[in-house]
C-alpha cells in the first residue's frame, strides 16, 4: 500500500530517509480528518455486523444465556447433525429453493417485458402515468400488501371469492390451503416489484443509440422487428447481469412477507429457512440450533454470490461490485 502524498514536503525533511513510523505519524498528522470521518463507520460495522459474526460460534456451542457466547461449551457439529436430521429443516430448505426457482422463472421476465412495452408507448402522458402507477406498490410496506392480500382472498368478504361466486364456484379458503400458498406469494411479489424493477431495463433501453433506430426506419423495419433486432440485443448485457445477480441472491426469499401470510396449515409449502430460523430461534429460544441453520444459509448464499460475481467478471468484464 503506498501513500500518495509525495508532492507535499514532509516536515522532517532534515532526515534523509524518515523511518516508517515517522512517515505514518506525519501522514496521520496531515490527514487525521479523513480518519476521523472513517472511524464512526468502521466502529458501526464492527459493532453491528462483525461482532455478530463472532457470535456465530454459538452454532458450534451449547449456548446458554447465562454463560454468554464465549463461555458456553463447544459441542462441534451436533446442531448440524440435528438440523439435517430434522424433517422441518429439510422441508424449509426445499421450499426455499422451490419458491426462489418459481420466483425466478415467473418474476424475472416480467420487468423486461414491461420495459419493452413501455418503450413502445408513444404517448408520453400515458407512459408517464402508467409508469407512476406500476412503481407504486414497491413503496408500500409488506404489512400493508399482506393486509390487502388477506382481505382480497378472504373466504367471506374477499373479492376473489366474490368473483368466483359469480361463476357459481364455492368459496375457497385460499390462505389455509398449502397448494395455493406459492401461487399467491409469488404472484404478490411480481405484482409488487415487476414495475419498479423495469426501471433498470428502461435505463438500458434509453442508452441505445438512436441512430440505430433511424437507419432501421430508413430500411423500412417495423416496430416489432426493431424491438427484436435492436432493442433486445442491446439490453442483453443488462439482462444477463440482472440474471446473475438474481441467481446470486437465490436464497433471499422475502421471508417478511411469508411470516405475514403463512400459518401452520400452510407450513408444508410456505416455510422457508429464514422463517424456520425465526420460529426456532426468536420464538422458541433455541438460539444455538437456529444460528446453525442461519450459518448454513449464509455460507450457501456467500458461495452463490461469489460464484455469480466471478461468472459476471468472466463474461461481461464488469464485476458486480
Amino acid at each position: 500500500m503506498t501513500v500518495e502524498n509525495v508532492d507535499k514536503p514532509v516536515e522532517t525533511s532534515s532526515f534523509a530517509q524518515p523511518t516508517r513510523v515517522q512517515r505514518i505519524v506525519d501522514h496521520l498528522k496531515r490527514e487525521w480528518q479523513i480518519y476521523a470521518m472513517l472511524i464512526p463507520l468502521v466502529i458501526w460495522l464492527l459493532l453491528f455486523l462483525y461482532k455478530p459474526m463472532y457470535g456465530l460460534q454459538i452454532a458450534f456451542k451449547d449456548y446458554s444465556i447465562f454463560r454468554g457466547i464465549t463461555a458456553s461449551p463447544w459441542i462441534g457439529f451436533e446442531h448440524f447433525h440435528t438440523l439435517f436430521g430434522s424433517e422441518q429443516f429439510v422441508r424449509a430448505l426445499r421450499n426455499t429453493f422451490i419458491i426462489s426457482f418459481y420466483t425466478l422463472v415467473f418474476g424475472f421476465p416480467m420487468p423486461i417485458l414491461l420495459a419493452l412495452m413501455f418503450n413502445e408507448v408513444l404517448n408520453q402522458w400515458f407512459r408517464k402515468s402508467t409508469q407512476t402507477i406500476v412503481y407504486l406498490p414497491h413503496f408500500i410496506s409488506s404489512v400493508i400488501i399482506a393486509g390487502i392480500v388477506i382481505t382480497a382472498f378472504s373466504p367471506s368478504a374477499g373479492i376473489v371469492n366474490t368473483v368466483l361466486g359469480w361463476f357459481g364456484a364455492d368459496p375457497i379458503y385460499f390462505l389455509t390451503k398449502p397448494e395455493w400458498f406459492r401461487p399467491i406469494f409469488i404472484g404478490t411479489g411480481i405484482w409488487q416489484e415487476a414495475g419498479f424493477q423495469s426501471i433498470v431495463y428502461l435505463a438500458a433501453i434509453a442508452g441505445v443509440s438512436p441512430t440505430l433506430y433511424e437507419s432501421a426506419v430508413v430500411d423500412g423495419a417495423s416496430r416489432w422487428q426493431m424491438m427484436w433486432k435492436i432493442t433486445i440485443p442491446s439490453i442483453l448485457p443488462t439482462i444477463l447481469i440482472m440474471l446473475i445477480i438474481r441467481i446470486g441472491n437465490l436464497l433471499e426469499v422475502s421471508f417478511e412477507m411469508i411470516i405475514l401470510l403463512y400459518q401452520p396449515a400452510t407450513y408444508e409449502t410456505a416455510d422457508v429457512v429464514n422463517t424456520f430460523i425465526y420460529r426456532q430461534g426468536l420464538q422458541s429460544g433455541q438460539y444455538d440450533f437456529a444460528a446453525a441453520a442461519g450459518l448454513f444459509n449464509a455460507v450457501i448464499a456467500f458461495i452463490l454470490v461469489m460464484g455469480a460475481n466471478s461468472i459476471s467478471k468472466r463474461y461481461s468484464r464488469t464485476s458486480l461490485w
Binding site: F48, L49, P52, M53, G55, L56, I58, I69, N274, I277, Y278, G281, L282, Y287, A290, A291, G294, L295, N297, A298, A301, F302
Partner: peptide
Amino acid sequence: FNAGLIPFFL
C-alpha cells in the same frame, strides 16, 4: 455475508 438473524438479535 451476514451472520444472520440470531447472532444479530443476540
